[in-house]
């Protein structure tokens, strides 16, 4: 970036702006055709040519899935290997659910399946047909009113970077609604499947304690 003279206007991106599909294929064709800076291909000899013929998507065993997420049914044909986590993020654009380890070791991908907290990274999307999935995007009410647990997380500063937060909140909602928030010790144990590297743990416990009161009243 050039150092501007003072008071020069600029384009900027807001903190919460999303950039959806601003790139399309035509741009790339134009771009690659005119670029002399980078070579166009570094492909391993033979591999690229071989796969263009062989790589038909029909060769991958797939399933047709009716996926019920946040009250909406999505009909998808997906590679059998697709996890619920990758289906949400890569196919339904529901990116609130996060990938932190992909092996059931961090809890960032926690969603509700028929109301119970589970790990979407260790769940095949083909195996949840007909069951109700709830993600972080499905917690607030249609008018935007936050779930009491969400509000309590803000009030008690129960996160820093926010990356584990959707998973923390899904577990916390299950904790409160499943009546498992009887004591701080019970909350801590219940929430121990959700790592928080920023280490907001005491504030998470405080938020759940407060939300429990809110949910009951």
């Amino acid at each position: 970036m050039k150092r501007p003279p003072t008071s020069q206007p600029t384009t900027s991106s807001g903190a919460t702006a999303r950039e959806d599909g601003v790139f399309n294929r035509r741009h790339f064709l134009v771009g690659t055709a005119t670029s002399a800076v980078l070579p166009l291909s570094f492909g391993t000899t033979g591999v690229r040519e071989a796969v263009t013929d062989a790589a038909l998507p029909t060769q991958v065993p797939s399933s047709s899935v009716a996926l019920l997420v946040n009250g909406r049914t999505h009909r998808l044909i997906l590679d059998n290997r697709t996890t619920l986590l990758d289906a949400l993020r890569e196919h339904l654009a529901l990116t609130g659910t996060k990938k932190g380890c992909d092996h059931g070791q961090c809890g960032a991908c926690t969603v509700h399946l028929d109301g119970e907290p589970i790990l979407s990274c260790l769940t095949l999307v083909a195996s949840v047909e007909g069951r109700a999935v709830t993600t972080i995007e499905g917690l607030a009410q249609a008018d935007g009113a936050l779930h009491p647990v969400q509000q309590a997380f803000i009030d008690h500063d129960a996160f820093q970077c926010g990356y584990c937060t959707p998973g923390q909140i899904m577990s916390a909602v299950a904790c409160v609604e499943g009546d498992r928030a009887g004591s701080d010790a019970e909350i801590r144990e219940y929430m121990s499947g959700n790592l928080c590297r920023c280490a907001a743990y005491p504030n998470i416990v405080a938020a759940i304690r407060a939300a429990k009161t809110e949910v009951r009243s």
Binding site: R18, D20, G21, F23, R89, L94, K99, F153, G162
Partner: peptide, 16 residues
């Protein structure tokens, strides 16, 4: 944005 899943982290951006 963080408690609703709306905050976009790098891998959340859609790129065609």
């Amino acid at each position: 944005a963080k408690v609703t899943g709306a905050a976009p982290y790098a891998s959340d951006f859609a790129v065609g």
